[in-house]
């Protein structure tokens, strides 16, 4: 299916959706959002692209193949539990670091967020894997 409207829309929607998915991912710890929804949006960005330009062209555009992206996500999620082990706590105990506390740019980073990043990649990868395998041929 070659639609110019869809192609132009997909080209512009892709970066937008990616940025949005990262925002949703970051705010997810205390507010609605999170790794799963963010991952769906990231996946949707590339699925839309694949709908407009075809699966083959999309796969050339992405750094990781979907299956590797899933594996990477799993690895990150796994690693998020490890800092707790190093400090002698049970696996997956949350650890937080705050940068620029009490300023406008307060940035809280921690292992639960890292876990969410893992979920983010895993969900996006899984979604692309499934959709691409249906969309092929």
């Amino acid at each position: 299916m070659e639609s110019v409207i869809l192609q132009i829309a997909a080209r512009h929607m892709r970066p937008l959706l990616i940025i949005l998915s990262v925002i949703v991912l970051y705010r997810g710890h205390n507010e609605p959002g999170g790794g799963f929804i963010g991952g769906l949006m990231l996946g949707a960005a590339y699925i839309l692209y694949a709908m407009a330009f075809g699966v083959g062209k999309t796969q050339n555009r992405i750094l990781f193949s979907p299956i590797n992206l899933t594996a990477l996500g799993l690895l990150i999620a796994l690693l998020s539990g490890v800092p707790a082990l190093l400090s002698g706590m049970p696996f997956m105990t949350g650890e937080w670091v705050t940068f620029f506390a009490n300023s406008a740019f307060e940035l809280k980073l921690g292992t639960p967020l890292l876990f969410d990043v893992g979920v983010f990649f895993a969900v996006a990868g899984m979604l692309m894997l499934v959709m691409f395998s249906i969309m092929e041929e």
Partner: peptide, 11 residues
Amino acid sequence: ILPLLFMVILI
């Protein structure tokens, strides 16, 4: 967690 790690490596 070890099977998970192995799975990732094997992928």
